[in-house]
């Protein structure tokens, strides 16, 4: 790697550091990860870094990923709704799918188990959707990627929308006539959202 490239990398790192700092000031997602200074002092990293002096700018291993390659795997849904497909979720349809495919693990109404309790029972401390999940988009993302447990990834987008609507309804978050779609799912206000705080442990003598 040329001296110039290395300088550019350092500059990029500093820029990155500043970008993270800006997020801090906005009170956004502050994260107590090591600073860039600490990173450069880390033994593993430093050792690795010093050996990089004669690295080529790129090794050229691997292949360029095509748009099709990316689309095939890029299934995540962001908390802003980014990635949501077209479709509409209706409570009634969701209830029918739930009774067919979810009831065995999650109970008749989502409160009974035997596995994860999905619907909060008021004062219950169980981590249910209504009293613990901070983002509604996570429901769509997770149901689509991993449910049902014995047939993961078998639900189509439309079924996932219906189930999302039904579970939000059962938790008292939307009413029975609400229709969920790519535009409004991220705007659903989740009761537990305000409970979430970032990790404040940072080592040192204080027990947190």
């Amino acid at each position: 790697m040329s001296h110039r490239t290395f300088s550019l990398m350092i500059a990029a790192c500093l820029f990155l550091y500043n970008a993270c700092g800006e997020r801090d000031r906005k009170g956004d997602l502050r994260f107590s990860a090591p600073t860039m200074k600490e990173i450069s002092e880390d033994a593993t990293y430093s050792k690795e870094d010093s050996s990089r002096a004669n690295w080529p700018e790129r090794f050229g291993f691997g292949k360029k990923a095509s748009t099709a390659d990316i689309i095939a795997l890029d299934i995540d849904i962001g908390p802003d709704g980014k990635g949501l497909p077209e479709g509409t979720g209706r409570v009634k349809n969701g209830m029918l799918i739930y009774r067919q495919k979810c009831i065995a693990c999650h109970g008749a109404t989502g409160k009974e188990g035997p596995y994860d309790v999905l619907v909060s029972k008021g004062e219950s401390d169980k981590k249910a959707i209504g009293n613990y999940w901070p983002y509604a988009t996570t429901l769509f993302d997770y149901i689509r990627r991993a449910m049902p447990f014995d047939a993961p990834g078998s639900l189509n987008d439309q079924e996932v929308y219906h189930l999302t609507a039904y579970l939000l309804y059962e938790n008292g978050i939307i009413d029975s006539m609400s229709v969920i779609n790519a535009r409004n799912l991220s705007k659903v206000e989740m009761p537990a959202r305000s409970r979430f705080v970032l990790d404040d442990r940072k080592g040192g003598p204080e027990v947190r």
Binding site: L29, D76, P79, D80, P134, T137, T138, F196
Partner: peptide, 14 residues
């Protein structure tokens, strides 16, 4: 997937 915000997946939220 490199991004500028966390994705709020099921494991890191619920």
């Amino acid at each position: 997937e490199v991004a500028d915000a966390p994705f709020m997946t099921r494991e890191e939220t619920s």
